[in-house]
Amino acid sequence: MNSELAAAARTGQLPVVAPALPVPVRPLRGPLTDALRRLRRDRAAIAGLLIILLMALLAVGAPLITRQDPIEQTLVNRLKPPSSAHLFGTDNLGRDVFARVLYGGRISLRVGLVAVALGVGLGTLVGLLAGYAGRVADSVISRLMEVLLAFPSTLLAIAIVAARGPGLENTMLAIGIIGVPVYARLTRASVLALKERDYVVAARCTGASGARILFRHILPNSLTPLIVQSTLGVATAIIEAAALGFLGLGAQPPTPEWGLMLTDARNFLLNAPWAMIFPGGAIMLTVLGFNLFGDGLRDALDPQMRP
């Protein structure tokens, strides 16, 4: 061996065999495990997750938790303060506020999730196209997205709903659309950063199609910011939906939607504050949950962002 080594040294040719020395190695750990560990240590994020789970549980289990009908009116019972019969009191038309808040959770969570799914879906496609398709398409799409972003988001949502008519479906559509440019820009930025990476170049050299490169190689690696943004996006969507409901453009009565409940209750703020406090509190808590969790996710998934 020694003579061989010496010979190799002399000829300048190093052996191809690796030294079989036992080197101390850190236990193998994927980036996901890493992120989960960081997330677990983040108390605020865990609190956020618990809030989200709680609200989701209350919404899904609404019929099991309360026997009251969220729509049934009993005018003689209007504006009754919280009691054992009506945990959160009753509203202007004698409906049970507790039941309305629970069922309202179904609507708010659904709007949040559907709107974000719509925004992420469309936004990602648009962003991939802009980032990968080249200069002209990129310029056109980017300018278009900038125009959309230039509108105050609530105003744009109001315009879309006003054009298509008020209602829950159009609310989701409007909130989805106002999210598109945000996700499109995020995706485009990732695509631009990733498409010159070696593994992408390698895939291209092997003759992989554009779609294959985009969806197998680039998209999975640009998911992190999208996940973070869409978690925060759910919170925004819930607030936007409540705002549209408050303005009379979102869910229509008698739907137990939180924003709509606020509008109904605001005239009785002094006489029956419970009709406003509970749906308002539900909005606040849910949004807080998504925001805390979203912030935690960002810290956990994107170590570079950490201070």
Binding site: G248, Q252, P253, P254
Partner: peptide
Amino acid sequence: PSPQPIAEAIVSDLGRVGIRAALRRET
């Protein structure tokens, strides 16, 4: 004096006899 809740109450009453009236609002 408060058209919205009055309308909701009327529509709820109509619903009890099978008249399904959708609340529509002109701004």
